[in-house]
Measured scan of single mutants.
Amino acid sequence: QVLVIRIKIPNSGAVDWTVHSGPQLLFRDVLDVIGQVLPEATTTAFEYEDEDGDRITVRSDEEMKAMLSYYYSTVMEQQVNGQLIEPLQIFPRAC
């Protein structure tokens, strides 16, 4: 299952990153890619938005798994409803 992660860049749009092994993705892998997209920032975590629009911070593989399972459940709903699949949007955080 292909996963598209949209890395939101403060004040300048976003970069889409296509991942072919989504469920095996590790927290460190995401930080590495964010580091390539935002080389001047030191990113130690990132956030995503849940169904209520609240930002949830991801700082570990466990939290990463929770984010992915949340995302895959929303994708299934979108597929069932015949909607366009939205990329998983993440917001890098420099701490």
Rank of each mutant, 00 (worst) to 15 (best):
V37H: 15
K8D: 06
E86H: 09
V15E: 03
V19L: 12
D50M: 14
T57P: 10
Q79K: 13
E51V: 12
Q78P: 10
D52P: 01
P92W: 02
A45D: 12
V15L: 08
Q78I: 04
N11R: 08
M76T: 10
S12K: 14
D50Q: 11
K8H: 13
Q24Y: 05
V80Q: 14
M67D: 02
Q36F: 03
P92K: 01
A94P: 08
P10M: 03
G53P: 01
T42L: 09
N81L: 11
I5W: 02
E49Q: 10
F27I: 05
L84D: 15
P23T: 08
R59L: 04
G22F: 12
I5Y: 03
V19I: 11
S73A: 09
S12W: 07
I34P: 10
D50I: 10
Q83F: 08
G82S: 09
D32Q: 07
I34M: 10
R28E: 11
T44N: 15
D54E: 14
R93F: 07
T18V: 04
S69W: 05
R28M: 07
F91M: 04
E51N: 12
N81S: 08
E86Y: 04
V33Y: 12
I7D: 00
Y71D: 00
H20T: 10
D32K: 11
P87W: 04
L38K: 05
S60L: 00
E51G: 14
I7H: 01
K65C: 05
F46N: 01
I90A: 02
A41L: 15
A45S: 13
S73N: 13
E77S: 12
V15C: 06
I90S: 03
F91H: 06
N81K: 11
E40N: 08
M67Q: 02
Q89Y: 07
P92E: 00
R93D: 07
P87G: 02
I85G: 07
Q1C: 10
K65G: 09
L38E: 02
E47W: 03
I9S: 11
L3N: 05
E40D: 09
E40G: 10
E49P: 02
M64Q: 03
E47Q: 03
G35P: 04
K65Y: 03
R93G: 09
L26S: 13
L38A: 09
S60Q: 02
R55W: 04
D32V: 03
V2R: 12
V75A: 12
A14P: 13
Y72H: 12
I56L: 08
V2H: 08
I5G: 00
W17A: 12
N81Y: 15
Q1H: 00
V58H: 03
F46P: 05
I85M: 07
E86W: 01
A41F: 08
L68C: 03
I9R: 13
G82D: 08
I7R: 01
R93P: 06
T43R: 04
Y72M: 08
M67R: 01
N11G: 13
R28N: 12
S69A: 13
P23A: 10
I9P: 14
R59M: 10
L68D: 00
R59K: 14
V80R: 13
T42G: 09
